[in-house]
């Protein structure tokens, strides 16, 4: 489509968005990415509905998701003990072979114990310390990283909850549970011979990388490249405010 028309007034901007529009990803590909996410990250209900609505066959059977969903929800709810049990029910090798993950789970358990306990109650304190002694200390010898992590966990016990040093704040952040739940999910997937991360994650990384790289290499792309997700409401009006105005020079 090498139109040689004289519409060169705003050449690059329109050129870029026109090129963007000319790319026509197949819905089948996009649907496969969505299904891949629903299955690998464990959204069985949505996966079933999607299979029906989009006329797709899921690549994994739905049942295998359910264990993972249960485990994930345990972790998200802070019930690490049950999560570890379930993981071991599924395949004890998963944690045996992955001491880092195992340690991360146990330390999360420690954090949860501390969080649940009353800081002024001596019994609760002892419970946390004894858990750390029994479960974490013997494993911590394995690596320096573990020791540091353990120390941070213990520090939680000491500091008052509302006056935590910055370095300890992440331990109380729900994101930690998310993070570990994701790691566990991935480990289970790997152990069952499935692939790595969900495709959409790589896709997002690729989008980020290519924009960064294109800017680094001074390619002619718009100064602002909207994702088309209007974060205030659901409507997607990126056609209007989307592809930026000014060019990088």
């Amino acid at each position: 489509m090498s139109t040689s028309s004289a519409s060169v007034a705003t050449p690059t901007r329109s050129h870029f968005s026109r090129r963007v529009e000319e790319v026509r990803p197949s819905k089948g590909d996009i649907n496969a990415v969505i299904m891949d996410y629903l299955l690998s990250e464990g959204y069985p209900d949505a996966a079933q509905k999607f299979a029906s609505e989009a006329n797709l066959l899921p690549e994994l059977s739905i049942e295998t998701i359910e264990h993972r969903v249960e485990i994930r929800n345990c972790i998200l709810a802070g019930d690490i003990e049950t999560a570890i049990e379930r993981i071991n029910d599924l395949n004890p090798q998963i944690l045996d072979k992955n001491s880092k993950l195992h340690f991360a789970l146990l330390r999360l358990q420690l954090v949860e114990i501390v969080k649940r306990g009353d800081p002024n109650n001596k019994e609760d304190l002892m419970k946390a310390i004894s858990f750390a002694n029994k479960q974490l200390a013997p494993r911590a010898k394995e690596s320096k990283e573990f020791i540091e992590d353990l120390e941070k966990g213990m520090a939680l016990i000491i500091f008052p909850r509302d006056n935590l040093p910055v370095t300890l704040k992440p331990l109380l952040d729900p994101a930690l549970r998310f993070d570990i739940a994701a790691q566990v999910n991935e480990a289970i997937l790997l152990s069952s011979g499935s692939r790595r991360e969900a495709r959409i994650k790589d896709l997002i990384k690729l989008r980020q990388w290519s924009e960064q790289k294109a800017r680094d290499m001074k390619k002619a792309i718009p100064a602002r490249l909207s994702l088309g997700l209007n974060l205030d409401d659901e409507t997607d009006d990126d056609n209007m405010n989307g592809d930026g105005d000014a060019m990088v020079t």
Binding site: V23, R24, I30, I34, K213, L229, D236, D238, G242
Partner: peptide, 22 residues
């Protein structure tokens, strides 16, 4: 009056164009 492609598709489209540039 809605965008013909979703944000996810847009993301794919933009990425493809930038990959071509790169």
């Amino acid at each position: 009056g809605k965008a013909s492609s979703s944000a996810l598709e847009k993301l794919v489209q933009q990425t493809e164009v930038m990959l071509a540039d790169l």
